[in-house]
């Protein structure tokens, strides 16, 4: 019974669509060969795989400046010294984050003592050991984290971002 109703609904929809299609067809005749063709596009942005550093370049709890997915998107690469969720590398402790505060785009500073990113603008702070979770602050997202991969040679690649980066409406420009 339910199935039949669905079929009915589909048929009505089809008829309605059919009328539209007729009008569209008429229009296309008028338009002739000038009919616009929609561009094929991907549903998600296509992230580059960028080498940020080698595992050997990192010292525990020393933030290394990086940029991803391009030079205008500053971030830091960190070896935390103990495994964290989302961490990569032989010790599962390497992470990377955007350092533009998702509240108003101020540059965050890294505090190695409690491993947080802190905003001088309005005092928001984010936990480097908890996926960039906002400890306290005004931002309505947690800190964008770069998706990392480490190859056999120890080279660390960024290959994606899990949140919208401040100052861009597309993570790749």
């Amino acid at each position: 019974m339910k199935c039949n109703r669905l079929v009915d609904a589909g048929r009505r929809q089809f008829l309605r669509g059919g009328l539209g299609a007729t009008a569209g067809a008429a229009a296309s005749v008028v338009m002739g060969t000038s009919e616009a063709k929609a561009q094929a596009a991907l549903a998600r942005v296509d992230y580059p795989a960028n080498r940020l550093a080698n595992v050997a370049d990192l010292a525990v709890n020393e933030a290394m400046d990086v940029a991803y997915p391009d030079a205008d998107s500053p971030g830091v690469l960190l070896k935390l010294g103990q495994a964290v969720e989302g961490g990569v590398g032989p010790d599962g402790d390497i992470v990377a984050f955007s350092i533009l505060c998702p509240h108003k785009g101020w540059y965050l500073s890294y505090n190695g003592e409690d491993r947080t990113f802190n905003c001088p603008g309005h005092h928001s702070r984010f936990d480097a050991e908890a996926g960039g979770q906002q400890v306290w602050g005004h931002a309505t997202n947690n800190l964008p984290q770069f998706v990392l991969r480490v190859d056999d040679a120890g080279d660390i690649y960024a290959e994606g971002v899990d949140e919208l980066i401040y100052g861009r409406l597309s993570n790749t420009l």
Partner: peptide
């Protein structure tokens, strides 16, 4: 020009929550 990075305190950016 939104093909460029917008900087601190930009009026031309909105978060996914917005």
């Amino acid at each position: 020009d939104l093909s460029e990075q917008q900087f601190q305190d930009s009026a031309a950016w909105y978060a996914p929550s917005m």
